[in-house]
Simulated scan of single mutants.
Amino acid sequence: MVKIVIDARQASLGEGMKVKRILPFRKQRMVGPFIFMDHGGPVDLRPDLKKSMDVLPHPHIGLSTVSYLFSGELVHRDSLGVQQVIRPGEVNWMTAGSGISHSERFEDPGILSENSLELIQTWVALPEKYEEAQPSFENYKPEELPVYTGKGVWMRLIAGDAYGLKNDVSTHSPLFYLHVKLDKEARFGLPEKHSERGIYIAKGKLKIGSTVYSAGQMLVFEPGVDPVIIATEPADLMVLGGEPLGERYIWWNFVSSRKERIEQAKEDWKQGRILLPPTDDEEFIPLPENPFKPRDNPSPEPLS
Rank of each mutant, 00 (worst) to 15 (best):
218 M>C: 01
155 M>I: 02
151 K>S: 12
54 D>A: 10
193 K>R: 12
61 I>R: 11
82 V>A: 08
14 G>H: 10
177 Y>E: 03
106 F>H: 14
26 R>L: 10
187 R>I: 07
250 I>A: 06
228 V>G: 08
180 V>C: 07
290 N>R: 11
290 N>V: 11
162 A>F: 13
292 F>Q: 02
303 L>G: 01
217 Q>G: 07
73 E>S: 12
93 W>R: 02
253 N>L: 07
136 S>K: 08
86 I>S: 06
201 I>L: 13
29 R>P: 00
216 G>R: 04
284 F>N: 00
147 V>D: 01
230 I>W: 08
253 N>I: 08
42 P>Q: 07
106 F>V: 12
61 I>V: 15
179 H>M: 10
252 W>H: 12
230 I>V: 14
276 L>S: 13
249 Y>L: 12
231 A>F: 14
259 K>E: 14
142 P>V: 12
154 W>D: 06
150 G>W: 09
138 E>G: 00
99 G>F: 07
110 G>F: 07
139 N>D: 03
18 K>D: 07
183 D>F: 04
40 G>H: 00
239 V>F: 08
127 P>G: 00
1 M>E: 14
71 S>E: 15
236 D>W: 11
144 E>F: 07
47 P>G: 06
195 S>W: 05
211 T>N: 06
61 I>A: 11
40 G>P: 04
15 E>V: 14
40 G>T: 03
128 E>L: 00
228 V>S: 12
136 S>W: 00
161 D>V: 06
160 G>H: 08
24 P>R: 09
61 I>C: 10
121 Q>K: 05
242 G>I: 01
125 A>G: 15
118 E>S: 14
159 A>K: 08
203 K>R: 14
257 S>R: 05
188 F>H: 06
191 P>R: 00
141 K>F: 11
23 L>P: 13
205 K>S: 15
96 A>G: 07
171 T>P: 04
191 P>G: 01
270 K>M: 13
